[in-house]
């Protein structure tokens, strides 16, 4: 039998061993009291019980603001070079792994985005099992089953059961096998998925809940603060800006996270806005999360991490649409 068990006692050494493969990052509690993926200075900083970070791991592959092109009169436009520094990202819950899998489909599949490719390759994903709180619904979204990891660590009282999901993960486990022992892993507890069926059926038939009164309710309460998409692991829409540099000759083109609940999102020159009302913007967000656009049509992109429900200052929750339909409010 393969060595797969890491005891709590060996955990700090294991982290040290991981750090040999790249900069170790994981969930820590910042000085201003939020959970965030940050560089780990000492194993004691890691928040193993972290339920969710405020900002999802997407920032590692798709930073909030980045230069995508540079311009100079001599060289014209050129791609910028992403740093590509090796990072070991520890503590990814199944929902966050599913979120990364979704972004992989968007940015790596049909037209690979050069910057995303570079950053994504440089990051090793170490998953960690978790205990859901009242905001989570990964079971509902079918994302409770871990996917898209290099190593997944199933946490129990005595320690962690490791599984490798890639050759990179296998290599690391092999390298650190002196810290491991062989044990029979506990059988997985099936997740309760109360309304997964409802959501998947609704998504398959392209349900837009056009008659629901909830849209009006959402639109009436929403503050357009944008927190819900900022913190969403699968929201990736972006704005592009070009800035001339002070030399008056060269320039930089930046892409920056945008938000579909902002009024400017659907506005075109001359002031016409294709999503003038907040209600229209909510429907757009719903459509993107649950029904998908273009090649991602039919793919539900909400992974049930619960961040948007948690951070929304007025507690708006798109899931209510499904619950209303299924009569399980």
């Amino acid at each position: 039998m393969q060595k797969n068990f890491l005891s709590n006692e060996s955990f700090p050494l294991f982290l040290q061993g991981l750090a040999a493969s790249g900069d170790l990052h994981g969930p820590v509690l910042t000085d201003d009291g939020v959970m965030a993926f940050r560089p780990i200075c000492s194993p004691a900083d890691i928040q193993l019980d972290c339920i969710r970070t405020l900002i999802p791991p997407k920032k590692y592959f798709f930073p909030p603001k980045e230069a995508i092109l540079t311009y100079s009169p001599v060289k014209g436009y050129q791609l910028t070079k992403a740093a590509g520094k090796k990072v070991i990202l520890f503590g990814l819950h199944p929902c966050d792994l599913a979120g990364i899998a979704y972004l992989d489909r968007v940015f790596l599949e049909s037209q690979p985005d050069p910057l995303f490719v570079k950053r994504r390759k440089a990051v090793t994903l170490i998953g960690l099992s978790c205990e859901p709180d009242e905001y989570c619904f990964c079971g509902t979204m079918g994302t409770a089953e871990p996917q898209n990891f290099d190593i997944f660590m199933h946490r129990t009282e005595a320690g962690f059961y490791l599984s490798a999901g890639s050759s990179r993960g296998k290599k690391i486990i092999r390298r650190l096998s002196v810290l491991l022992e062989a044990r029979e892993p506990p059988s997985p507890v099936p997740c309760e998925c109360k309304i997964e069926e409802t959501i998947l059926q609704a998504a398959t038939r392209g349900e837009t809940f056009s008659e629901s009164r909830l849209w009006e309710d959402f639109a009436g309460r929403c503050l357009s603060c944008g927190a819900c998409s900022l913190c969403c692991p699968t929201c990736y829409c972006f704005d592009v800006q070009e800035r001339g540099r002070l030399d008056g000759e060269t320039a930089e083109r930046l892409r920056e996270w945008d938000n579909c609940l902002f009024k400017s999102h659907g506005e075109v020159a001359g002031g016409h806005n294709f999503r003038k009302t907040r209600e229209e913007r909510f429907r757009y967000r719903f459509q993107h999360k649950y029904l998908g656009f273009g090649p991602m049509r039919g793919i539900v992109s909400c992974v049930g991490c619960g961040r948007c429900r948690d951070v929304c200052p007025v507690k708006i929750d798109l899931m209510e649409l499904f619950r209303e339909k299924a009569n399980i409010l």
Binding site: V106, F107, Q111, D113, G206, Y236, C237, F238, D239, V240, R255, D258, C260, H265, G266, E267, V268, F274, Y284, Q287, H288, L291, G292, F293, G294, P295, R297
Partner: peptide
């Protein structure tokens, strides 16, 4: 159709009409 467009390649998600991307579909 005209929509706000940033990328032109179905990535920035500004231009959707229904479940089509105006820039690619």
């Amino acid at each position: 159709l005209e929509r706000r467009m940033k990328c032109g390649i179905g990535l920035c998600c500004h231009c959707a009409v229904g479940d089509f991307f105006c820039c690619t579909d």
